[in-house]
């Protein structure tokens, strides 16, 4: 019977195509659509702020250089992930990330909570030549970042595009985007105060690459790395204990302690 039915539909191309579309649509609709409607999918985090223009520009450098190919930004709910990298990642932490950079491969370590773990100067040295600070590293060196000045004239357009797709940038933030980018990397300038006014006191003002005469891509990338994991405190509150890795019974039982595993 079923075979007879199939003999029929394989006589009409349009009918066959419609059957393919029907069969192929079900899974995606059932798994994706509810992620937009079920409230529990993304946690509440009232303290969450969007990236500053400089951090956003740094994020774009991170994408441009393909950092996501070797670094994840998603700490799993596994004990060893949590012990190594910090509290597991929550959905809300990437809610303003267009696109998300969760990654799929750790040739290098996870970066979801890298912010504040190393000094600016360490990042600059590491990005310029990783083997100067980590001799066994296989990370590429990025010496051109500190030599390339950052394009800021279009940062307002970047923020406006993000506003259009739901990131809570105000019109004031958009209007001041280029100035704020400059101010965040020039602590002594007149523009610095505006950054914390618009993005909160926690926003870091620093001469990220150590040079205050020019705004470079290195400034932007370091500003981005230093903010990772610090946009909200939600992950440090009200989260359940991580799961044991499946082979944990072989291992010494003991309380999960944060070690210098990195």
């Amino acid at each position: 019977m079923a075979e007879l039915f199939h003999r029929k539909i394989e006589r009409t191309a349009i009918g066959f195509v419609l059957a393919i579309i029907a069969a192929a649509s079900v899974g995606g609709i059932i798994e994706i659509a509810p992620l937009f409607t079920i409230d529990e999918t993304v946690e509440e985090a009232p303290d969450m702020r969007p990236y500053t223009p400089l951090e956003l520009a740094g994020r774009n450098v991170y994408m441009r250089e393909g950092c996501y190919a070797c670094h994840s930004q998603m700490i799993r709910t596994l004990r060893d992930d949590v012990d190594r990298y910090g509290p597991y990642s929550l959905a809300v932490e990437s809610r303003y990330d267009h696109p998300m950079l969760w990654g799929s491969k750790r040739t290098g370590p996870d970066l979801a909570r890298i912010g504040g773990k190393y000094s600016d100067i360490w990042h600059v040295a590491h990005l310029t030549n990783p083997r100067d600070v980590v001799p066994q590293s296989n990370m590429p060196s990025y010496p051109w970042l500190a030599r390339t000045s950052l394009r800021t004239d279009d940062l307002g357009l970047h923020l406006a595009a993000q506003q259009l797709i739901g990131v809570p940038y105000t019109d004031e933030m958009i209007a001041n985007a280029a100035r704020d980018a400059l101010g965040q990397a020039l602590p002594d300038s007149d523009y610095a105060a505006g950054v914390q006014e618009r993005y909160g006191d926690e926003a870091q003002i620093s001469a990220f690459d150590g040079v205050t005469t020019e705004l470079t891509e290195m400034d932007a990338l370091v500003a981005y790395l230093q903010v990772l994991g610090t946009l909200t405190d939600a992950a440090y509150e009200n989260t359940v204990a991580p799961e044991e890795a499946p082979n944990a019974e072989d291992l010494a039982a003991g309380p999960a302690t944060t070690s210098g595993g990195r």
Binding site: G28, I32, V92, S94, R95, M100, A161
Partner: peptide, 18 residues
């Protein structure tokens, strides 16, 4: 040339791996 995907965060992750 640069653009921003309309999806973000967890929904973007699901759409991407779908």
């Amino acid at each position: 040339a640069w653009s921003y995907p309309i999806w973000s965060g967890v929904q973007d992750a699901m759409v991407q791996w779908w």
